[in-house]
Amino acid sequence: MKQFKLHSFFITLASITVLVSCHKDKVAPAPDKPTAQRAGIYILNQGGAGHNNSTLTYYDYTTKSLVADQFTAANSSTLGDVGNDLGIYGSKMYVVVNNSAAIYVTNAKTAKQIKKITLNQPRSIVFNKNYAFITSYDGTVSVIDTATLTITKTIPVGADPEQMAIANGKLYVANSGGLLYPAPPTNTLSVIDLNTLTEIKKITVQVNPIALAADSYDNIYVLSLGDFNTVPAGMTVVNAKTDQIRSKPTVSLGYNVPIYAQGDYVYYPTTTDNITYQIAVYNTKTQTLASANFITDGTVITTPYSVSGDPLTGEIFIGDAKDYSSDGSVVAFDKTGKKEYSITAGIDPGKIVLVNK
């Protein structure tokens, strides 16, 4: 991711009222190794759809202190409804809030707001050569100049675009079509040339593509939710050099489909019953499953909702949404899959980002 996932939207509609969580300040101390270059870690908590309770948790590696909502602390205002994505580019941090139609551009170190950009149901954000690219549910990708913070172009793509990934000079956009119900979801990736900023083709993948990741070998990994139990969920690997389908590895996906690439591996959750989850590890060099479960010490992640990592330390972070209505957590693992520490987060921790000193 995830992202506020489409399945989460339907779960929210069917669930009881989500309660605003009570944040706890107790947190296991982080190890010393991240502090050499990293200042801390941000966690964007989506909150419950329609409840305007998105928050931005910050954990400081040096002081080992936790701020339950750094955005509110810095701005005396709330993020709004469904914080969907988060990214740092240069000295600025961008917070994408879906239902509130907002992109908050802030100081990356303090989360103090610099500018608010209004977009129609923004979803995900990526960066390339002084531009931010943001998908919106109106079927477009908006191009924002990161110097002037203005929208310079709007690129039409497919229905209900979700996540994006960059490889081989191209931007790949997952066109989910997940809001077309009762019509079936769509099954394409839009390919945008980053030189011309135009869509040059669409690639057919498995139905309802949501989450994307790019490896260092110019491959794009696509996780698709399928067609609400009619068509199964699955993974598609696209060769970004040829834009051809490389493979469709067998995977058992659940409702949550975050994906993250680091080094020679891609990490994503799998389940056969939507109750018990594992974190699968796929080797991007050999194109084989490296491990059915990254976690080696028996640590249980109830509801894996986000996956991220630190390339400097090899750590992997997993956001646990637990029951979707109370405080979640982010658990840090070393590169061997052993738990290091846990950070108390807010409702549905959907995005994890490190900030440097």
Rank of each mutant, 00 (worst) to 15 (best):
Q3R: 07
L13G: 12
A14N: 01
P29A: 14
D32G: 13
D32V: 15
A39T: 03
I43K: 01
L44I: 04
S54I: 07
T55D: 12
Y59I: 13
L66E: 04
S76P: 06
T78A: 04
D81N: 09
V82T: 14
I88L: 05
S91Y: 02
V95K: 07
V95S: 03
S100Q: 11
A101D: 11
A108E: 08
P122R: 02
K153S: 05
P156M: 14
D160S: 15
I166N: 01
A167S: 06
K170E: 13
L171V: 08
V173C: 11
Y181R: 09
Y181K: 03
P182C: 08
N187Y: 11
N187Q: 15
N187E: 12
T188V: 14
V191L: 02
N195T: 13
L197Y: 12
V205F: 15
V207W: 13
A214R: 15
L225N: 12
G226P: 09
D227P: 04
N239W: 14
A240S: 05
K241Y: 09
T242I: 12
T250N: 05
V251L: 04
G254R: 04
N256C: 08
G263C: 12
V266T: 09
I275E: 04
N283G: 06
T284N: 03
T284W: 14
T288D: 00
S291H: 02
N293Y: 07
D297T: 07
D297C: 10
T302Q: 04
T303M: 13
T303W: 11
P304Y: 11
L312K: 07
L312G: 13
L312R: 13
T313D: 15
G319V: 05
D323V: 06
T336Q: 10
P349Q: 00
P349R: 01
V353N: 10
